[in-house]
Simulated scan of single mutants.
Amino acid sequence: MAQMTVQIVTPDGLIYDHHASFVSVRTNNGELGILPHHENMIAVLAVDEVKVKRIDDDSHVNWIAVNGGIIEVADNLITIVADSAERARDIDISRAERAKRRAELALEEAQDKHLIDQERRAKIALQRAINRINVGSRL
């Protein structure tokens, strides 16, 4: 069976390193499915989940919440470099829900006061919290 190596790196170091038969990500240009021998490429990732179908078992799938970043595909090595990323099993959903609520309140306040920069930051924080909740719920 053809396989790829998937590595996810953050400023904290390597957080994921496994072999895969399929990877799904969302880039700023849309969804991207990657199979072995995919054309070499680099793309900007959106804040979204990464799906990795592992080679050890057809039903073994890892889900990782990635808060943007860059993906490089080169010779069956997929490297994702992100500011932050968390595997589903490591996400504290109650903490993510609290972050979501804080972001919602910050967004409301920024909109009421017409604070454009704060509104933009609150929208990003909200998107990240929702992504973490969605990925953490995949277990």
Rank of each mutant, 00 (worst) to 15 (best):
L115T: 00
D48C: 08
A103D: 09
I130P: 01
D83E: 15
K123R: 15
H18D: 14
Y16S: 10
D92E: 05
L14E: 15
H38A: 02
D12T: 11
N76D: 13
R138C: 04
I64M: 12
H38V: 01
E104R: 03
A65I: 07
H19R: 15
N29G: 02
A20P: 00
R89G: 05
Q118R: 05
N134T: 05
I130V: 11
A103W: 09
I78A: 05
P11H: 14
A74K: 06
A103G: 02
D83W: 11
E119C: 03
D56K: 12
G13R: 13
L126K: 11
E97Y: 04
R132C: 02
I116K: 05
D75G: 08
N76M: 12
N40W: 07
G30D: 12
G136K: 06
I130G: 01
D75F: 06
R102M: 04
G13T: 13
W63F: 15
G33Y: 02
R98S: 08
R87S: 09
V9L: 05
I71D: 07
V81Y: 09
V52N: 06
A74F: 11
A99I: 00
A125F: 15
G13L: 14
E86L: 14
A103C: 00
V135A: 07
V52Q: 09
S137M: 11
V47Q: 14
A96S: 04
R95T: 02
G136I: 11
N40I: 01
S21I: 10
M41I: 00
G136T: 04
D56F: 11
N134P: 01
R89N: 13
V135P: 04
G13I: 15
Q111S: 03
A122G: 09
V47L: 13
N76E: 05
M4N: 06
I78W: 08
R26H: 12
A20R: 06
H60C: 02
I15Q: 15
